[in-house]
Amino acid sequence: MAGRVWKFGDDVNTDVLAPGIYIKLPLEDLASHCLEAVEPNFASDVQDGDIVVGGVNFGMGSSREQAAQVLKALGVAAVIAPSFGGIFYRNAFNLGLPAIVSNEIDQIAAEQELKIVLKTGVIENITTGKQLAGEAVPENLMDLVEAGGLVPYLEQKLNKKG
């Protein structure tokens, strides 16, 4: 996959991704408030296929999976960070949003174009021509990516059984 970069700092938390006061609203309304506390234009300007690059502990905090779901709903294709909040990381894959661990995000800037190979974790910075290392997505999570998330994965599994 390839896309344009939005770059954020460390500790982007679930309350700024999916603010609690809007959590009972329909997903598209909640999504319109995604990251507004730190980047007011994000929800309106983000485009299909864009890639969010964050600092350490991206998605820390709540278990609310809307934090990953709003990114997906806004068209974000993948999230890259040196480390993720553990629950967010699981949620992202369950919803079909790949999360890639990479310690080389200092070589990525906003607006640049990236290409990611999930199986190996290799990130190509198309803008600079540099190849960056990331962690390969574990096999059990690649199964989820390929199915499009946990629900379609379970659907396939249950149908096979049936």
Partner: peptide, 14 residues
């Protein structure tokens, strides 16, 4: 430990 809703869905049905 805490998990999100879709993860929980997996637990609830399996």
């Amino acid at each position: 430990f805490g998990i999100g809703a879709t993860d929980m869905l997996g637990v609830l049905v399996t």
